[in-house]
Write a protein that binds this DNA or RNA. Structure first.
Lengths: 223, 223
DNA sequence: GATATATTCAAGACGTTACTTGAGGAGTGA
DNA sequence: TCACTCCTCAAGTAACGTCTTGAATATATC
């Protein structure tokens, strides 16, 4: 028991899983898939890569066990291997945020100035949803809302928000949410809403974290 | 805000951190460093690589922010960037164990048959330590015991165990522990103790998990 | 059974990674 | 200051990873 060669092989296997996450495009795929299952075409569009290359990256993720597939007619849907993969992704982001030197700058460059963007925590939002004095807006793409969303949230994708402001009940605080702490959709939504004179905040993280904390969710699109 | 190029750069940065873990030798380094700080010479020996190559891998880990250094005289000590790195490593192992196809075989090849090896959980052990009816043996190398160990544990490195059985008080259950679920030292210790007629079990995981669950620890070697 | 659509595979160009060997820099103690 | 230890750096080589292009496969529909 315990010789060098088999130990190396075992740790190489752990390394394989980390290596699967060790590419920006695959990391983006995991981030998108943490929202729910999607097919290759959509995923290619989300990460801005060719379908062939996206398929290639999905294959590495599948080999490492991080994603699984399901066929529905002519399409193949990919989803995370389990909720634990989402937790791993979240842990990786946390460590990167607290230790990686330039990550703050990169995040600031991508997300912009968040200093004037009020945030609300998960637990506080859960209380206010229960109290019924807040409207929750899911600004992610419709496919992600359908795959799963915060219970009671309405879907207004960020691209449509400006034209659908009248769907929001007047004189109620708005909370926008999207994919997670490194997603700009909710930021953009809050900025837009505030320019239009609405009281708006963003959920501090996103749907996957809400779900992983066992807070109430729903699936399917509104009729 | 939110253009393709900066988004790619941000996710590439997350990928960099994962890539740092994406090598078997670096994974082994993290596993060893989760026990406490060590210098390059020791680390090279632990992972069975040249000092130059070990230094090279430590550099990648440091660049990714996963480890930090401290100079003491002529030696340079490496340690994890924070406890969160140990948590990330633990999450990675969990996901690998539950999703990676061949990991079970590799673990079995390295660890051997564990079916006849009784384990004890963290919380149960904490209770029995408090009750005082168990002797806890740390079978890791002395440097790791010194860097931190379960409060009340005695240090008998696995290589010395056969010759130091008389140090164990008679007629008391023994619990051996080491680095974690993928470490063989405690397994070997339990097998040896049982051959010698002692009631022995292994702690289900290891020191880093004990510590990260805020259970009592001590540092320094016994006088 | 033929066609259309969605996805994967194969080959190749190019950069990156892992490890070895040998030289070099930083600190210690006589 | 000098020799010594410990660690890092540089150069070199073989292997691997990424992405593009074009072809092949699998399923559904007509």
């Amino acid at each position: 028991m315990g010789d060098r060669q088999t130990k190396d092989a075992l740790f190489d296997a752990f390394g394989e899983v980390a290596k699967a996450l060790g590419n920006g495009r695959r990391a983006e795929l995991i981030d998108v898939l943490a929202q729910g299952e999607r097919h290759v075409d959509e995923l290619a569009d989300e990460i801005g890569q060719s379908v062939a290359n996206t398929s290639f990256h999905l294959r590495s993720l599948a080999t490492a066990g991080l994603v699984t597939t399901r066929r529905d007619g002519t399409r193949i849907y990919y989803r995370l291997g389990s909720d634990r993969v989402a937790e791993l992704w979240s842990a990786l982001r946390d460590v990167a945020a607290s230790h990686h030197q330039q990550l703050d700058e990169l995040a600031a460059a991508y997300l912009g100035d968040r200093s004037r963007l009020d945030q609300i925590g998960r637990d506080e939002l859960a209380e206010r949803i229960a109290a019924g004095d807040v409207v929750v807006v899911d600004v992610r793409p419709p496919a992600e809302y359908t795959a799963g969303h915060i219970a009671g949230a309405i879907s207004i994708p960020i691209d449509n928000l400006a034209d659908h402001l009248q769907e929001l009940p007047p004189d109620v605080d708005v909370v926008a949410y999207c994919r997670g702490p490194y997603c700009v959709y909710a930021d953009d939504a809050v900025r837009l809403l505030r320019r239009r004179g609405r009281a708006a905040r963003r959920l501090e993280d996103g749907y996957p974290e809400w779900r992983n904390h066992r807070l109430p969710v729903e699936t399917g699109s509104a009729s």
